[in-house]
Design a protein around this nucleic acid. Structure first.
Length: 524
RNA sequence: GGCCCCAUCGUCUAGCGGUUUAGGACAUCACUCUUUCAAGGUGAAGGCACCGGUUCGACUCCGGUUGGGGCCA
């Protein structure tokens, strides 16, 4: 490679959501650009849809920003090759088409769809592969006039060479050869004047001086005709690197956001979705499958994943450094990433592994940081005031501390709603109450505890542990039964944090009031 | 249907001809720790799709088969 500047791009269509596959493609491009001191470009392939564009584009822009994949040129940012929206570049495409026509790399074609269908049918009957006969090709004014006299409308087709081969030296796949005899004369401009993807994509890659096209494998088969366009237009050819797909959990099909229902049959996928839905419900969000969908980056942002977790997971979905390193900072990725080490086979998306990365990065944050992450959810659910008071913050701090890695994503804090509810509003699990609190011996202990709690000089861990242990010793009730009785009284359930943590989170007053309430609940 | 791509534990992967009884991670299971639930600790189970070749030697190279996927039709 010469020392030309590295310029890479990612070219999403504004589809209203940011697919994980796009996120990974963007990441690899971004890493490659950063590593080479190059430029990462965001181009919007919106030739097909011009309505609601801003709205449909937003999730992608926000997703990229959230992941920290800032683009150097593109929407909201501009750059030397503006505009970066294909819908605004029609003049450039038109010029390109004229040029292709002028140099004989393309031609006007007056065949009707019926003509084409007929040719295809005939080819099928003769058992040969169909290639357009160019019967309605018009290269001279006379020919054009003749077809137009018949009332025909032209499309523009590429005039592909009909023999020989074309070789793509792919940076990931190596040498890939195509037989040009099998290539069609693809349409590049429709009768209505609109342009076909291959044309616009190739022209822009040329115009933007793209040095490396790093994109998904689905484009590999289209590469010859794009190279043909690029060459005919006299652009310097970029290098190509075709990434394997991000596949569905447990299959090699391409991951699709439209197949959510099917994926939900997979337990681990379902679990992730349920986790999200639980958070959404408590936050009072109305969600739709388009965005609140584990195939879409938005989902992770909303339920409280950490971008570094997603980045690390995505980086390893199809790339590896060696046989053991699994945690990478963004800087390390930038330094160590290489296309040579990108896998060739599709990699399926595994929600469990992603969650494992999330837990790792969550626990790498300090308690104070986790408190900040978690607070918006509590505020959103109306469990703490906005802004939170010092005491509320302290309580959240204790909960986060006590929860440890039970809080995997920030929204999981809402699992501990029961600490925030007013004591009178705490729902107590009936079965747990009967099992752990109803026995007379347990009730006696709780009553005794009540008597002492008010007078305990200081409400600190050692004192409380001593107190609870002492009661168990004295009464002869098993320690576990004592703590379970207390746990049920304080939290309404028979599982959760260490009992002393529960007491400290609630504080003296609320501890007392919750025990009283539990005992009253039994009396009823 | 034609062309192209791909193929190591359930999943992500390491392996670029001998150092491999195929290594790691996630998930799973067992045991352990634990005054609940998690977490932690220890360990186990689990894989080179198949068939030919090349080679003294093949997970690794070549060919084919099968399977999966993509593009075009």
């Amino acid at each position: 490679m010469t020392n030309e500047r590295v310029r890479v791009r990612v070219a999403p269509s504004p589809t209203g959501a940011m697919h994980l596959g796009l996120a990974r493609t963007a990441l690899y491009n971004w890493l490659f650009a950063r590593q080479h001191g190059g430029v990462f470009i965001l181009r919007i392939d919106d030739t097909d849809q011009e309505r609601n564009q801003a709205e449909m584009l937003l999730p992608i822009l926000e997703g990229l920003r959230w992941l920290g994949l800032e683009w150097d040129e593109g929407p909201d940012r501009g750059g030397p090759y503006e505009p970066y929206y294909q819908s605004q570049r029609k003049r450039i495409y038109q010029e390109a088409v004229e040029k292709l026509l002028a140099c004989g790399a393309a031609y006007l074609d007056y065949a009707t769809p019926e003509d084409i269908a007929r040719e295809r049918e005939q080819a099928r009957q003769e058992g040969r592969t169909c290639r357009y006969s160019r019967r309605w090709m018009a290269e001279t004014a006379t020919e054009r006039a003749r077809f137009e006299a018949e009332g025909r409308k032209p499309v523009v087709r590429l005039k592909m060479p009909q023999e020989g081969g074309m070789v793509v030296e792919d940076l990931i796949r190596g040498r890939v050869e195509f037989d040009l005899a099998l290539e069609q004369d693809h349409i590049i401009q429709r009768a209505d004047g609109s342009f076909i993807y291959h044309l616009t994509s190739a022209v822009d890659d040329g115009e933007f001086q793209i040095s490396h096209i790093i994109r998904a494998e689905e484009h590999l088969s289209n590469t010859p005709r794009q190279i043909f366009i690029l060459q005919a237009l006299g652009y310097k050819l970029p290098r190509f690197a075709h990434l394997p797909f991000v596949a569905e959990p447990g299959s090699k099909n391409k991951l699709s956001k439209r197949k959510l229902k099917e994926y939900l049959k997979k337990p681990e996928f379902n679990e992730l979705m349920r986790r999200g839905e639980k958070i959404a419900r408590r936050m009072g969000w109305t969600v739709n499958d388009d965005l609140f969908n584990p195939v879409v980056v938005d989902f992770y942002q909303r339920v409280g994943f950490l971008p570094e977790a997603l980045i690390n997971y995505l980086a390893l979905l199809g790339w590896s450094l060696d046989d053991r390193t699994e945690f990478f900072t963004r800087e390390e990725l930038t330094r160590l990433f290489s296309l040579e080490r990108v896998a060739k086979a599709p990699a399926s998306f595994d929600p469990q592994r992603l969650l494992a990365f999330q837990v790792h990065y969550m626990m790498a944050r300090s308690v104070a940081e986790r408190v900040e992450l978690v607070l918006p959810y509590l505020q959103g659910a109306g469990l703490v005031s906005s802004p939170p008071g010092d005491e509320e913050k302290m309580m959240v701090n204790r909960i986060v501390q006590a929860a440890g890695d039970r809080i995997k994503v920030a929204g999981d804090i809402l699992d501990y709603e029961y600490f925030f509810l007013p004591d009178t509003g705490l729902a107590i699990d009936e079965k747990a109450l009967i099992r752990w609190v109803r026995p007379e011996a347990q009730q006696a202990i709780l009553r005794e505890l009540l008597a002492v709690l008010g007078s305990v000089t200081s409400f600190d861990p050692e004192n409380l542990i001593g107190l609870v242990d002492g009661l168990a010793d004295k009464s002869g009730v098993k320690p576990m039964a004592v703590s379970q009785a207390l746990r049920v009284a304080l939290t309404g359930r028979d599982y959760g944090f260490a009992i002393v943590d529960c007491m400290l989170i609630l504080g003296r007053e609320r501890t007392i009031s919750r025990i009283e309430r539990a005992l009253q609940g039994l009396a009823r």
